[in-house]
Design a protein around this nucleic acid. Structure first.
Length: 299
DNA sequence: GGCCAGGTGGCCA
DNA sequence: TGGCCACATGGC
């Protein structure tokens, strides 16, 4: 099978090792990591590509693409590069964030520990919503179990070099499932309803990443999303942070964020919402990155 | 055994 | 608006 190789230059403040470590800690059936690379399938307009990502010794990102469907074109090549740039958030300039963070009581420790980390995204907005909804209220290890069951019950299994990879279930399929079919994987009935509802909205293109990008106003975006049943302020901000990439997305009521602030600030209790507003006022415009680095302390 | 988990909607004053 | 409560299940 033909393999195409592309190079992407990396920002100075990008550490492949730190980002690989992060991905390793969140590995699910959708991608795999080893000591030096990340691999996964991606689908573009129904065409399948298998990609392998690693770093060259002159610090460039190497992307090898196997043309599984025999449909590789310059157009797909461009889309694959965009996908990688987005997944690793390569196009943001973080100098201003690091300048703020170095002098910040709560951020200086996480940025020194994880310097070079990027907000590794969830490019598929349906996946982002499902992951957020699954993670509501329950502990993260149980949320991961549910996600694993979700992917393996309703997703598509592919094999590459004898190893399993999964494609995330399509919103169209999930929208068509019965409540009982979804309930069997162990989530609450309400979560089944929320997920089926968002699947329907995405399948009908009433909600899309592009539309949310175009709003370009976080308050509008949150207002629009929280009108949907099952999407509260936390979920809306989570999706805007991990997928749509509003730099000022801020899930302020996130328990993990509270624990991270307690740890980073050596506090004897978790800070209150008002205290967090006070703390975060120094991060204006970079709340998403502040949150992402703080999360890395506790997850 | 009880309480807390990467919350949210519904109900009631 | 503000204060409860249920929700599925796992980990500690």
């Amino acid at each position: 099978m033909t393999v195409y190789k592309q190079l992407l230059s990396l920002p100075e403040d990008f550490s492949f090792r730190i980002n690989l470590d992060y991905l390793k800690s969140t590995e699910d059936g959708l991608f795999r990591t080893d000591q030096e690379s990340i691999t996964r399938f991606i689908v573009l307009d129904g065409n399948l590509f298998f990609i392998k990502i690693y770093v060259s010794n002159n610090n460039r990102l190497v992307i090898e693409t196997e043309d599984v469907s025999q449909s590789y074109t310059k157009q797909f090549e461009r889309q694959i590069m965009l996908y990688i740039r987005d997944w690793f958030d390569l196009d943001i300039h973080l100098e201003p964030f690091y300048t703020i963070a170095k002098q910040d009581e709560y951020l200086k420790m996480p940025i020194s520990k994880f310097y070079g980390l990027r907000n590794i995204g969830i490019p598929d907005i349906f996946e982002a919503f499902v992951w957020a909804i699954l993670g509501q209220q329950i502990n993260l290890s149980f949320a991961s179990t549910l996600k694993d069951r979700f992917i393996k019950n309703y997703g598509k299994r592919l094999i590459h070099n004898g190893e399993d990879y999964w494609l995330f279930p399509s919103p169209r399929l999930i929208a068509s499932l019965s409540m009982d079919e979804l309930f069997k994987i162990g989530m609450s009935r309400r979560k089944c309803e929320y997920i089926r509802g968002i699947a329907r909205l995405i399948a009908n293109n009433q909600i899309s990443r592009e539309k949310l990008v175009q709003l370009s106003d976080i308050n509008l975006a949150v207002k629009q999303l929280t009108a949907i049943k099952g999407i509260g302020p936390w979920t809306a901000n989570y999706v805007l942070l991990r997928c749509v990439r509003y730099p000022n997305a801020f899930p302020i009521n996130d328990v993990g964020l509270h624990n991270a602030l307690k740890l980073a600030g050596s506090l004897d209790r978790k800070p209150s919402i008002d205290e967090i507003k006070q703390i975060a006022s120094a991060w204006e415009g970079y709340e998403s990155y502040a949150t992402f680095f703080l999360w890395r302390l506790v997850y």
